[in-house]
Write a protein that binds this DNA or RNA. Sequence first.
DNA 1: GTCAACGACTTGTTTAAACAAATTTTGAAA
DNA 2: TTTCAAAATTTGTTTAAACAAGTCGTTGAC
Lengths: 256, 256
Amino acid sequence: MKKQPDREEGEKYMPKSIYETIYRDLKQKIENDVFAYQELLPSENTLIQTYNCSRNTLRRAVSRLVTDGYVQTMQGKGVRNIYQPIAQTAFTIGEIETFRESAARNGHHAITKVLLFTEFSINEKQALYTGFPAGSDIYYIQRLHYLDAMPLILNHNYFLKEAVPGLTKEIAQNSIYEYLEQTLHMTIVNSKRVMTVEKMTEIDEKYLMKDVQDYNCMAVISSQTYNSDGICFEYTQSRHRPDYFRFYDNAVRKSV
Amino acid sequence: MKKQPDREEGEKYMPKSIYETIYRDLKQKIENDVFAYQELLPSENTLIQTYNCSRNTLRRAVSRLVTDGYVQTMQGKGVRNIYQPIAQTAFTIGEIETFRESAARNGHHAITKVLLFTEFSINEKQALYTGFPAGSDIYYIQRLHYLDAMPLILNHNYFLKEAVPGLTKEIAQNSIYEYLEQTLHMTIVNSKRVMTVEKMTEIDEKYLMKDVQDYNCMAVISSQTYNSDGICFEYTQSRHRPDYFRFYDNAVRKSV
DNA sequence: GTCAACGACTTGTTTAAACAAATTTTGAAA
DNA sequence: TTTCAAAATTTGTTTAAACAAGTCGTTGAC
């Protein structure tokens, strides 16, 4: 695995680094049962020969599998496969990906409906929970996300206007992130999220919970997203229909 | 930063690796505003001289800060501090830590009450959601966790008996994890978790939700925990009082 | 046969070096 | 002064090497 080919214009995605190529290959092998659950993967030395790479590069790939909860390393013993496929209800969160991407990945059909598209300036109260300084000009968008014709998520988006110029209702109806990345060439870096359970609002009731009996709460994910300039350009509150909400996570024990 | 001293018996914790020492030092400096929000940290070369370590070791420390959402690296520019302190409601999840540890870290007083301590064998139905093979002998424990005299969490613990021998009601009342680590010398490695919102049960109502108005849901975290032998020795369902539940997370955008 | 020591093999940590890629600074030319 | 190209500085990727530490099987002494 000596060199990676350059990526061409419009070409399908290809990992730009060796360790990521190896990571994806191992991950795919684990998902497809090439390595059995609870069995040891081939040793570092073996995999180094398989991929013809250096030890550091291989270890870098494996360490990502560890944080994904796919494998577990044991000093002196080896690397054990602890991956088990999960029964998916509607879709899986866990990375930064769009509703569309997430739906497609799980074989569903996604539609987005824009309920409200407007602009205003952040006041003192909003500054507290959005993290934007008071007085900032923002786009405020309410969007309803359908999965297979069923409304599942109500999003309240706040986009910093100076960081995301030219946003329109049409873009919001398709994919805002596609616009950010493809047109504005923005690079999304990370997203700080807080998950809570909140009581249903009238808007929730009207758009999401008509058919849902008994529940009076929503699963809420509030997030602040940063781009590669270190600017927090988005605050979003995602209100999920509770009976279809699942959030997956893997926690690795740090040395105590 | 040439060598780390050996850890002595009963000594207070000291990181056993150089990169972790650096990670902790930088983290603490960020939390204490030694580096201002949105400012660049000193460059790699500067920090290498500061800590007298190699570039790889320093970069390893910084990469943990990235996954923690503390900093953001920008090729050609530098490393930007994006840490902002969070207003904590009751406590923070995000790592594998005990209720006691979590409470203490946030300056609260924790009490645990054992509601039920029993043993049985897993049946077919339970095998589905616990992940234990049918027929496994397990301890089943119901525990109520109080924070500052307020009941917040109701835990349903399933411990694999052969992996966790000698568990008693007394241990459950104190700290099971302390028993696992100190007495059984077990090493906890990782924990796969799923977060959902579920309707309140009679038990929830009886123990947790007497004073809580209007909510009819619980925040539920179901987790499977693995030890260093690769054995899933624990399945736990944690049912949280919704108005005090917060789950923090930082998602890093992987190359798209 | 038992047990300890050794060696082989595993993953974990650290250093060093070279090159790539992105950005900023410098400085010379216009 | 402005402009542009080169140089310096920054982080990103990869290789190589050495040693540490944990596990396991073998061997040999008893």
